[in-house]
Nucleic acid binder design. Structure first.
Length: 151
DNA sequence: GCCAACGTTGGC
DNA sequence: GCCAACGTTGGC
């Protein structure tokens, strides 16, 4: 089973919102690399739910993939901020996966993530990292969960 | 609000 | 195919 990290801005959609919704299509991904990672996701894969663009940024919970990648409907919706006029029903460009909560974690702020040795090489902590969907090694995933559980 | 990083776009 | 301009992300 592969592991992932998903970023979301909690002002828009945070981990508690996922708990309330029980499942949610991960819409609005408009980056090819992130999309391609979503296409690799399988039902049952678990992902760290990361809160970005907030104070402090950090890890809020674990979620899991409950539906594989399929076209993100927001790309066809002219009223959506994610609308993409280049996308057609015959040739959709963007996908989403559907995720469900697994469990909330003790909130681990970015400063604390930086102290986890297993994450020292991880893309998450790399300077200038803007990728909102990324793979985590089992080691990285386990280290984050262990850190959250320890605290 | 600022700014660095980086992806995308479009002129050539 | 290059590269400058532009837009977006995201930490601070």
């Amino acid at each position: 089973m592969a592991h992932w990290l998903l970023k979301s801005e909690p002002d828009t959609f945070g981990y508690p919102d996922l708990v309330k919704a029980r499942r949610e299509g991960w819409d609005g991904i408009r980056n090819y690399q992130a999309r391609n990672f979503m296409r690799e996701m399988r039902v049952g894969d678990q992902a760290i739910f990361y809160h970005s663009n907030t104070t402090p940024p950090g890890v809020a919970g674990v979620c899991k993939v409950v539906r594989r990648a399929e076209p993100d409907p927001s790309q066809f919706d002219p009223t959506s901020k994610y609308f993409d006029p280049k996308s057609t029903a015959e040739n959709p460009i963007w996908d989403w996966v559907t995720v469900a909560p697994v469990r909330a974690l003790r909130y681990v702020p970015l400063d604390e993530l930086k102290t986890i040795p297993e994450l020292s090489e991880s893309r998450l902590l790399a300077k200038g990292n803007r990728l909102s969907v990324m793979p985590l090694s089992d080691l990285e995933f386990d280290a984050i969960v262990a850190c959250a559980t320890r605290g």
